[in-house]
């Protein structure tokens, strides 16, 4: 018999706690496969966020540190400065990265910190029960914007890739999605590129992955994928926002 598919050894055997249809698990898989394919798993240190991915350290089969809410880029900075030969990445949600941790992400980018950031944008605070995030779409109802996010007083989505791409010291910034197979393959390529940048000491890399939250969006897993396509893509255009090697 021929093995056609295997769980990546970049993941542990611990059963994931994510809700059915949540794409956090898929993103974990892509990151794990990337680390194995680049042959850096053994020298990788993951930094887990506070958010639904708080247990990421149980799933990634590498050393890890659990950061305080929003502070993963600072923690990663501490690790990387001590061991520049380690491959250090943060895995952060949109509340973690784009709200409480905005200073840390902007300044890690500003320093050109040679780390990789996996930014999982599901337009909501998943872990705490579906509150409004800075990335929530205008009109999107959440438990703290029950009538839908209002541009007046609650503003409009913070576009992290667009913002960080203006920072001179960044090396690679891309937004991808995993709502269908072609997009998923594209996401994998972007992750590979981002980690490759770090391996080659090129500086700060970030991949924003549009992700689902069926539980707090109140949608079925299939409808959630459709919702990404129909509602998130227009607000969050996919693409490479910065690549110092000139690729797109």
């Amino acid at each position: 018999m021929k093995i056609v598919y295997e769980k990546s050894r970049g993941l542990t055997d611990v059963p994931m706690h994510y809700c059915p249809g949540c794409t956090h698990g898929i993103i974990h898989k892509l990151v794990a496969e990337t680390l194995v394919e680049l042959d850096v798993l053994g020298r990788t240190v993951a930094v887990a966020p506070v958010g639904c991915a708080v247990f990421a350290y149980e799933y990634f089969n590498c050393d890890a540190q659990e950061a305080a809410h929003g502070r993963a880029p600072a923690v990663a900075t501490g690790i990387k400065r001590v061991h520049p030969d380690n491959i250090v990445f943060t895995y952060q949600g949109d509340g973690d990265l784009a709200s409480i941790g905005t200073a840390e992400i902007v300044h890690a980018a500003m320093r050109g910190e040679n780390i990789t950031v996996v930014f999982v944008n599901n337009a909501i605070y998943g872990m705490t029960g579906g509150q409004m995030a800075p990335t929530t779409l205008v009109g999107q109802p959440t438990t703290t914007s029950p009538l839908g996010r209002s541009r007046l007083g609650q503003g409009a989505p913070l576009r992290v890739c667009e913002m960080l791409a203006t920072i001179e010291a960044t090396a690679y910034i891309a937004r991808v999605s995993v709502h269908n197979i072609p997009r998923l393959n594209g996401a994998k390529r972007a992750l590979k590129k981002a980690f490759q940048m770090q391996i080659e000491n090129k500086g700060f890399s970030l991949v924003e992955v549009l992700s689902t939250c069926p539980t707090n969006w109140g949608l079925s897993p299939v409808d959630s994928l459709r919702w990404v396509e129909q509602n998130m893509l227009p607000a969050y255009p996919l693409g490479v926002y910065k690549d110092i090697e000139g690729g797109t």
């Binding site: 240190v45 930094v47 540190q65 950061a67 305080a68 502070r71 600072a74 923690v75 990663a76 900075t77 501490g78 690790i79 990387k80 400065r81 001590v82 061991h83 380690n86 840390e104």
Partner: peptide, 9 residues
């Protein structure tokens, strides 16, 4: 938090 990361390393 940088101290945390470096100490943990």
């Amino acid at each position: 938090n940088m101290v945390y990361g470096a100490a943990g390393a």
